[in-house]
Design a protein around this nucleic acid. Structure first.
Lengths: 408, 408
DNA sequence: CGTAGTAAATAAAGGAACTAAATTTAGTAC
DNA sequence: GTACTAAATTTAGTTCCTTTATTTACTACG
């Protein structure tokens, strides 16, 4: 970043250092000058000066009770500072195919409210109004003024380029990503990204997966968010992580996801009358069969379900192998709604990987974020944007908007 | 980079600005203060002060004749500065399986000398001494003192992690990457990287491919250097771009490269007596057949060669499709020694992509760097490291080493 | 209760790095 | 020789940080 910043005036220093202190404030529950000195390497005088300015600008506030929460007893009690709760907020949205979920959090990532709206139409205009409604409901529940939103991040089931646009030649994608920013004006900057990418960011934020992994969304169709060396891959058209290549992978042959196939194979068996009389699956009407039901039946030893799970495990193993061998990822994290019940499939796939593929073989894991992966990733995306350049946002916008309304 | 630099003292500013001026000096043939002012946004006073310091430190020198080369006539003639030719040098090495090539350049990227040594042994120790010999020969030809080398970058046919190490469980890789830094001590810092990765960097430096492409090395085995969104992918073990996945891709099934298969299929046809009497290939003894000969024969209309080229084109199309569909690359650049003769294969593959695969389809191109891709990429890798952090290198090391030797 | 000890806050002085504005210098054009 | 031009140089700030006292607000203990 330095090299971009040719021509650094002396005021830039102040900005760098203020950013450093502010970043510490975003992470710490509460902090004293001495801590900030250790983090930034600056003098007490300087740090206190920066804190003064941050208070002026509305980012942090001083909290009086200095020692009671303190880690020390002796000497003059230190002043303590804290990020203001009302500095700004971030909104994360999962604009899925059938459901829209919006979540509001403060800058520390504490979730204040969520709202879920069902979508009956696939039309782009309808999606726009539903997203707006969900966002506004969540903001209302959290009692956050729209002007208090720094960023709104929306996850959509379509490839999205760095400008938030999806390829224009596809009607489905057009409907999934119908220019959300215009309908969310005055709710902060809007970022649109692919749902699998955001799920990957959510996993990355959990910090337990290392720097290189794939987050595999696996409901109806496979889609992956690829994090390599800590970086999320996008591609010029946002197509990185699209799984079209599965069509030409031996033993896979299609992009159909675990959810779809698990359900479909069970339905096929049911309709064909191929379920043994004692089968757990036989008790469920064909039109109510779901992948989760199949996985749970397999966990209970159902023979048909186990057969399906084995086939899915083989399939998943091949997919994981493809990702790991081309991209060297350590781990493939299966996310999406099916993740919770996925254990039998993962065991089978892990066994297949170890028995039939050359080391190093990727670790398979189910996401622990359940169906929230995308919306949490959207939040995380917004939060990390704020953490990277906090000073590019203005904590006073909200206050000014409030004043204006008061006058009106 | 700012956020890493918590605690910026006032001297940091100087360093930022000095780096900016120096970076301009690295690019411009010669420059005046006014230019540097435009580039950096600094005042004349400051720029001249920085130039003074850069002269002191041995980076640049003042050139007297100010106006004769000048773009203007009026006013007081401007002082002119130029990067010193002897500031430092960069060495790039292609430590291939059978040949070692070393190249020496100055900091502007002008190549001063090259040396090529054949390798008869595949033993790691032998490779180390050969690499050292090639480097020293090139340095001798360029009349560059070893202490005048800022960086030596070595490309090897093995995956390499960010610390320059290859996975330990593979004897071949061990021999290909046998701890070069120890044998090149006192020839600057040593960087080891995968050959395909370096070839990709060479292509990136040419600047005509956009931010996302794959450089496909295609001699005996396929290997790729992947550049996505302008970043070179590595992976935790340096395994990104390994093409093991081709084993499970329909219509490909192995990692064998175009060079190997082109030769092998021709040899098979020759030995089986399947070559028509008029065939160009029939005039070449089986043991002298090469992929290049096959491609050239195809260009001349040889029916057997055309058959081979068609099969290879189908294969290449599938490989390009896999890379493009998973990573969204715009372009697949085929590099390596076969690249020059590759046109017939590329035409076929392009046709296959357009006819049988869904858009967007990647552009195929042969590298214009011929067999030099890896060694030029190694150079580029070193040069861009210098360009990024020029001030982390010391132009005076060489002079001091010279003095020491003079005294001794 | 008063004194010693401690760690933070504050104040004062100073240095490094940049800008701005006035002045000087080294040329060309006529 | 005079007018003009554009760069160099000089001089006088400004900003931001550090260093070095000095003061303040507490705890501990006799």
């Amino acid at each position: 970043m330095f090299q971009d910043d040719a021509g650094a005036s002396t005021q830039l220093l102040r900005k760098i250092n203020m950013g450093a202190v502010l970043r510490h404030a975003l992470e710490a529950e509460t902090f004293m000058a001495t801590e900030a000195m250790a983090v930034t390497g600056l003098t007490r005088t300087t740090v206190l000066g920066l804190c003064d300015e941050l208070v002026d600008r509305g980012w942090i506030e001083e909290v009086g009770d200095s020692r009671e929460a303190g880690q020390y007893v002796k000497g003059r009690p230190a002043r303590r500072y804290r990020l203001r709760n009302d500095v700004g907020h971030v909104v994360g949205v999962d604009a899925g195919q059938h459901t829209v979920t919006a979540v509001v959090s403060d800058l520390r990532g504490t979730i204040l409210a969520r709202a879920t709206h069902a979508l009956d139409s696939q039309d782009g205009a309808a999606r726009r109004t539903t997203v707006r409604a969900a966002v506004d409901e969540a903001l209302g529940l959290a009692a956050v003024h729209p002007a208090g939103v720094f960023l709104t991040v929306i996850g959509v089931p379509a490839p999205v380029d760095e400008n938030g646009r999806s390829p224009r030649n596809n009607e489905f994608w057009d409907n999934m990503n119908p220019d959300f920013p215009t309908v969310l004006a005055d709710r902060g900057e809007t970022i649109v990204d692919n749902d699998a990418n955001l799920a990957a960011l959510a996993e990355r934020a959990r910090g337990t997966h290392g720097g290189s992994f794939a987050a595999l969304l696996s409901g109806e169709r496979f889609g992956a968010g690829l994090v390599i060396d800590g970086m999320l891959l996008r591609g010029p058209r946002g197509g990185a992580g699209e799984m079209r290549l599965l069509n030409v992978v031996e033993g896979v042959g299609s992009t159909e996801g675990l959810g779809l196939l698990g359900r479909q194979w069970a339905v096929d068996a049911s309709r064909a009358g191929a379920l043994p009389s004692g089968s757990i699956l036989a008790r469920i009407p064909a039109e109510q069969l779901s992948a989760e039901a199949v996985f749970n039946a397999a966990a209970d030893g159902d023979i048909t379900a186990l057969g399906i799970v084995d086939r899915l495990g083989e399939r998943l193993a091949r997919i994981a192998h493809v990702l790991a061998s081309l991209l060297d990822v350590d781990k493939v994290i299966v996310a999406g709604a099916v993740a919770a019940a996925l254990e039998p499939v993962l065991s089978k796939a892990t066994a297949v990987l170890e028995d039939h593929f050359e080391a190093p073989v990727p670790v398979l894991a189910a996401s622990t974020l359940a169906a929230d992966g995308v919306v949490l990733g959207a939040l995380e995306c917004g939060l990390s944007a704020v953490r990277e350049q906090p000073l590019s946002f203005d904590p006073r916008r909200q206050a000014r908007a409030g004043e204006r309304e008061g006058r009106a």
